[in-house]
Design a protein around this nucleic acid. Structure first.
Lengths: 186, 186
DNA sequence: CCTATCTGATAATCTTGATTGTCAGATAGT
DNA sequence: ACTATCTGACAATCAAGATTATCAGATAGG
């Protein structure tokens, strides 16, 4: 909507292309956040971005490609936001607070993150594994046993899912309080 | 294969129908265990069961219907097997041991259980929620906070996933040892 | 004004897989 | 042997959605 003026050389066409690409990624994240990856068609992404399929394939070779890109973008933003929240005094608790706070403020992207991504192709699986490793460094910085790290991560993610399913009813502080003990498991 | 003799009235036709239905459910569980729900087509289920599509729709109105049934069957069997393992002395630890032991011996059905089932329709979602409640009684019998229960369950499931991803390399005892502390979180 | 390029919309194509329908051969009860 | 029913295989239909192709109108630079 918001019908951009047609003046297509206010910006160079590369700039416009880049714009479109970015709009598509945003749209994909948005739609996937509402309907899940499976429920996100190319048509829906394009409609959300106010573009048509032609532009989609101008920037991405396939639907899966944009999913991977959207996921990585959300991942990066989430990690950055959390990093900004970290307090040296108590890195784990503050990271946790940052994590849940960001989820609460970006409810769309949040959902994409918490899905099981192992069943959406190898690229997605790899991206999700990388994310897992990065989060592990935040939430279980000194754990060495892979299974234990998995447990901590699983606990936090499942708590987040339940929280989201309940409509973010609990205040962040409560959620953090529930999750924190799971980071302390010896 | 194993070409059953055609003698279709050795059993009444109702019996044969019931047989076919059961074979289909087994097959669905098996294929889903190998390829995931999305990767499980009606054709694949039928091939695995040694039957054809006609019989599929004789017993099930849709593909989703058999998924729900297969999931519930696996759920029941898993819970029964765990129940058989429970030791009154230390119910949680023994339930955990039973859980992982069963996963190890039934690797196919195991996978179906650990998937995120929220994105396969409302019936599946409901079934998975029920399962969650039953498992919570086993693994977190005295917890009262929903978020904490979620955390414990999430930890155990994630540990199981990681274990499976690693090809069941760790012995069950180690996996139980990694998971047990997560059931003790206060 | 002309024209090459860009844009937006729409339609055509292709794939995949579910769901139905048809049919000849097999079986068992009579 | 006769016939109604059951069986297995296969083709036909339908739908959804990805990917491509087409086309008329808009724009800007010369």
């Amino acid at each position: 909507m918001a019908e951009e003026k047609r003046r297509y050389s206010g910006q160079s066409f590369e700039d416009r292309q880049t714009d479109r690409r970015a709009r598509l990624v945003r749209a994909a994240l948005d739609v996937a956040g509402r309907f899940g990856l499976e429920g996100t068609s190319v048509a829906a992404i394009c409609a959300e971005a106010g573009l048509t399929a032609r532009y989609f394939y101008e920037s991405f070779p396939s639907r899966d490609a944009i999913f991977v890109e959207a996921y990585r973008m959300a991942q990066d933003e989430l990690l950055e936001d959390i990093a900004a929240h970290i307090d040296k005094r108590d890195p784990v608790a503050s990271a946790l607070t940052g994590f849940f706070a960001v989820l609460e403020s970006h409810r769309g992207p949040a959902r994409v993150f918490l899905l099981d991504l192992d069943d959406h192709g190898p690229a997605m699986k790899a991206a999700s594994r990388e994310a897992g490793e990065k989060f592990a460094q935040l939430f279980a910085p000194r754990a060495k046993d892979a299974l234990q790290i998995a447990g901590t991560l699983g606990a936090i993610l499942q708590i987040a899912k339940r929280w989201i399913a309940g409509g973010f009813a609990e205040p962040v502080a409560n959620v953090v309080a529930a999750a924190l003990p799971f980071t302390k498991v010896k």
